[in-house]
Nucleic acid binder design. Structure first.
Length: 589
RNA sequence: GGUUCGGUAGCUCAGCUGGAUAGAGCGUCAUCCUUCUAAGAUGAGGGCCAUUGGUUCGAAUCCAAUCCGAAUCACCA
């Protein structure tokens, strides 16, 4: 908030004027004053007490007087408690803010907008999306929206992992066990259909390995010799050689999966400006290996494999090209980073990827820097923690995952039951009702996954349903709907809003005024949870305000106008903040 | 073993660029709908901020060590 900046500057100026000591404004610590104490903003004096050798009382009085005088009309009073200098801001300042606030321009855009790529989602085409993907999708989408809100240009991309041994596993299992069944013949969603064959593969593989061990093989040998495993390997080779039949099957099965993904993405609201397919990008980066060799960033071993030595950076030696000349994962990623940079010329590229790949991205950035690629310094890994079950990690292979579609449908169902039991939307059409259930169910889920610090792992217990009360999406949605309901009755015409504020009116005004700063913080930290917490605080504050003060039957016309305007602003702020979290807010619920 | 991340109320989490008496939500208990939406509000109870030491006027926050948990250190992606 500009006001805080001004306070810092004024304090620094005062110290300079009174004590002839240079202080940078950033060195001045300004907090919101604790509720029990009189005042709005507090300057912590201790640091200066020591530096200037004055008592807190003396210093506080001198600074308080000087700062107050330098901001006439703005600061009405100050007091000193222990080492804290508390300033009271004039009601008029907040009233001016409320009066001038524009619901279409709640945020001051950043002074230096950037072009930023956000890559997220990154699904595999051998199985449906699960809870972990949901956290990724919600985070990626929200980060992109927050950056946009701040005034940046954002390019959302997705890299689809559509090739490799894991895809071949589903394909082999389909050939072996499906008898020609398709999603159309079974009526199953395509991604689930294919995912089932991935699980069938692993069941068959496990059985074969057990049998081989029983017949006397060692575990290692059995795992290598299992026929279904060898068949998958052979299929991968055929795929790479471009075998027509294999490519055909691959395309067909991937299409089934994409059909399923499209439904899920549409439902959860993920979208991408550009989708990259690994089958097109997995050969990228080969020429960069040669360049790296020429630049002596890489070196070749006797078996002709190519490596980079990162031991001086505290990491290991890392292979970038196999002895057979094929490239590895990191090489593809370097190549893709270069390609993306060429296509979009972004200032920064954010990869929303789980924290299990922290090491990989550290290496990726380092190698790109050593190769002096233009993309290098803009690479940022937004590392988020895994979603785990009380029983431990989710494993697709073993079928111990919380399926994304099931989870979303379950949430919508709960929203439906809850809404029906409350009976507040009897005038809705069937279509409106369904939309409302989707909005609330999905809102609860998204908020649940976004309200915690992205980098922390989280535990999800499928036995306990996600709450609709308290620090939740529906609570915020409800508050919005409640405000809208009130405004429908009072109207929204506002003229004079008076000249004084009650404590709750003031608290709400201050909270509203800090929205822009919170968006900047969330953008800076790439952390939507900061916005989630803000929406909750704001909604809670409004609800206290609502419980205490009447809007429609306010004590005066000015007060009524003021509170209507506060309602309008709160609703608009909640709506915009929630939108940046990917959550819609209903007009009525 | 190396590296990185985490450990705050019964549970889920804020707070971490050092500042006033450590905060929410859920759950528990109590109060409030003849007045604007009770998916709400108000209050009570609940804490050796993993442990120990250090720096400081001041430490949940910074530093060190220890304990516990996770990820990673693949010619998988």
């Amino acid at each position: 908030m500009q006001l805080i900046q001004n306070l810092k500057q004024a304090t620094a100026n005062a110290i300079q004027a009174i004590y002839q000591v240079q202080i940078k404004p950033e060195q001045v610590l300004v907090n919101e004053t604790k509720p029990e104490i009189e005042g709005d903003f507090t300057i912590v004096l201790f640091a200066f007490v020591k530096q200037l050798g004055k008592s807190p009382e003396e210093l506080g009085n001198a600074l308080g007087e000087a700062v107050k005088n330098s901001m006439p009309g703005l600061i009405t009073d100050f007091n000193i408690v222990k080492g804290f200098l508390n300033f009271t801001i004039s009601d008029q300042f907040w009233l001016d803010f409320i009066q001038a606030a524009d619901t279409n321009q709640l945020i001051t855009p950043t002074a230096d907008p950037r072009k930023i790529m956000v890559e997220y989602s990154s699904p595999n085409t051998n199985k449906p999306l699960h809870l972990g993907h949901l956290r990724n999708n919600f985070l990626g989408w929200s980060i992109a929206e927050i950056l946009k809100l701040q005034g940046n240009e954002v390019v959302k991309t997705c890299i689809v992992n559509d090739r490799g041994i894991h895809i071949c596993k589903s394909m082999i299992a389909w050939q072996l066990f499906a008898n020609g069944a398709t999603p159309a013949t079974t009526g199953q969603k395509g991604d689930h259909f294919v995912g089932d064959y991935y699980v069938k593969y692993n069941d068959a593989y496990k059985a074969e390995v057990e049998q081989l061990i029983a017949s006397g093989r060692t575990k290692d040998d059995a795992e290598k010799e299992a026929p279904i495993q060898q068949a998958a390997q052979a299929m991968l080779l055929k795929w790479e050689q471009g075998d027509a039949e294999t490519i055909d099957l691959w395309k067909r099965m991937n299409e089934w999966v994409y059909g399923g993904f499209e439904v899920t993405y549409k439902k959860i609201g993920s979208d991408f400006f550009k989708t990259y397919y690994e089958s097109n990008t997995y050969l990228l980066g080969k020429d960069l290996v040669d360049q790296g060799l020429a630049k002596k960033v890489f070196y070749q071993k006797e078996d002709s494999s190519v490596w980079i030595d990162l031991t001086s950076d505290g990491l290991d030696e890392k292979i970038v090209r196999r002895k057979d000349g094929t490239s590895v994962y990191i090489t593809q990623d370097i190549g893709l980073a270069e390609l993306k940079q060429k296509e979009f010329n972004t200032d920064a590229s954010i990869y929303v990827v789980g924290d299990e790949q922290n090491y990989h991205f550290k290496v990726l950035k380092l190698i790109c820097q050593k190769l002096q690629l233009p993309a290098a310094d803009g690479i940022y890994h937004l590392s988020y923690g895994m979603v785990e079950l009380p029983t431990g990690k989710m494993k697709s292979r073993e079928g111990t995952v919380v399926d994304a579609d099931d989870l979303v449908d379950g949430m919508v169902q709960i929203a439906k039951e809850k809404t029906e039991s409350l009976g507040k939307v009897d005038d809705f059409t069937a279509e409106q009702l369904q939309k409302l259930y989707d909005t609330i169910g999905l809102g609860a889920l998204k908020f649940f996954l976004l309200r915690v610090d992205p980098k922390k792992k989280m535990i999800f217990n499928p036995e306990e349903s996600i709450d609709f009360h308290g620090f939740t999406g529906p609570f915020i949605q409800y508050t919005h709907a409640r405000i809208k309901s009130i405004l429908r009755k009072t109207g929204t015409a506002v003229h004079s809003i008076g000249s004084d504020l009650l404590p709750l009116e003031k608290a709400l005004s201050m909270k509203l005024a800090s929205f822009s700063a919170v968006v900047n913080e969330a953008a800076e930290a790439l952390d939507p949870s900061k916005l989630a917490i803000y929406t909750f605080d704001l909604a809670k504050l409004f609800n206290s305000f609502y419980a205490e003060l009447s809007i429609a039957n306010a004590e005066s016309e000015d007060k009524k106008n003021l509170r209507i305007q506060l309602g309008i602003l709160t609703a608009a702020t909640l709506k915009q903040a929630m939108h940046a979290l990917g959550i819609e807010v209903p007009e009525q619920m």
